[in-house]
Design a protein around this nucleic acid. Structure first.
Lengths: 131, 131, 131, 131
DNA sequence: GTGGTCTAGACCACG
DNA sequence: GTGGTCTAGACCACC
């Protein structure tokens, strides 16, 4: 499954779900027109309350990523991939900016930041695309 | 002032205050032995509830960064700079790791991340040390 | 075709169908004795679940607008036009009342409402009767 | 109180609440900077579950009508009145358009519609502004 | 079967 | 005191 939740993470579960679905759409794992797992099904798999999943899905509907097929389920919108890719890039950029900004204000040098990034890219596992 | 709070930021205000004081100590803006502004004074300047400032100060005392001078106020501990520098580096590294990790899982490429960092280092204002 | 459904509209599809058939009868597009399209046919044309069409037809039967011709289909009842005209007027009136009521409670002035109606009557396409 | 809910109305309670608050802001009953009644307080007054009120408030935050004052409550945003007035006008116009459109398609004449509106404006109670 | 709404109540962080 | 999150479970309309 393309969604995992980390209960330890401080960010709300419903946000984790919504974001990961966006990322799945951005990377093509979820295609336009495809139905998401039903609220109950996803809730079961994640061992989470259905309301929590429903809230994630509602946010995605509000953003136009998912569209309701009444009585059928929620489908990925046609223009979703493009927007999810933009969201993804913007999201990463903003988060990175926050860190870098605060680091510079705390007198961490650009050189230190570059070294940290190199270290991280070497140590973190490379991910594989599953289209 | 070496402390600014951003009410829009989701991280608790008391945490923002505590971290920025640590960073001020790490970079030498606040010297060992120096007194911090009183709770009321800082609260007034930041337009923030005194309880919030008090909580930040309490945490810093618990960590031994600040030490109470009875009847006088709170002073920066002698060994604070060294520890704050370590804290600062660790904090930046952990935050950076979080971002990079999630970015890679979302199929952002290392190359993209390197480019983002370069962009940010070029665009963000350089800070000056005030020892 | 005298029936169109708008999936974006929040009102149930079966209700949209039933209402539009009533309106078609009221305006003479559907004549007494005339057969409606079969459930399957209408479902195909509207790209809608046959159950949904069936439900609309069932409601119209319950109201006596349509009458079953065994083995043939559903026909418009003899006295249907008169009743559909009444229904139509009542429906429009009630809906208009709801809007006007809520608008007045929200401090929209009668003058504004009159202007809105004039604008709408000028801009909306005039319909032609197809008896 | 400037919010009343009608359980008979098909529109969800949380939407009724959100809309009426918007209307209160639009008409000046709620001023920028003013705090809304707390979630619990409003829930008590309306005899409704706090979650339901919270959902209405959340929507208003998402739209930028309300802004959170952490630990204090939810305040009306500075630019809210202007936007609420626009929302209100647009909302009424869209609803009116729906009715008129469907009425014309059902062969109700413009003259009939104008008469209905006149009737309604004469019969419905005039509201008073409470700024 | 699907999602949507609402209730009830617990727990938490923040100020 | 404030709002926010999450759980549990009921009920409903729609397809």
């Amino acid at each position: 499954m393309y969604v995992r939740v980390d209960p330890a993470d401080a960010t709300p579960i419903y946000e984790q779900i919504a974001r990961q679905i966006k990322f799945a759409v951005a990377s093509g794992v979820l295609q336009p027109g495809e139905l998401t797992p039903s609220v109950r099904e996803m809730a079961r798999q994640l061992a989470v309350n259905p309301n929590t999943v429903a809230r994630a899905y509602r946010e995605l509907q509000d953003e136009g990523i998912l569209t309701a097929q009444r009585g059928v389920g929620l489908a990925v919108a046609e223009d979703a991939p493009e927007r999810c890719r933009q969201d993804r890039e913007r999201w990463v950029y903003e988060r990175l900016k926050q860190v870098v900004d605060e680091a510079l204000r705390a007198q961490i040098t650009p050189r230190q930041l570059e070294r940290m990034l190199r270290d991280l890219l070497r140590s973190l596992p490379q991910q594989e695309n599953a289209p």
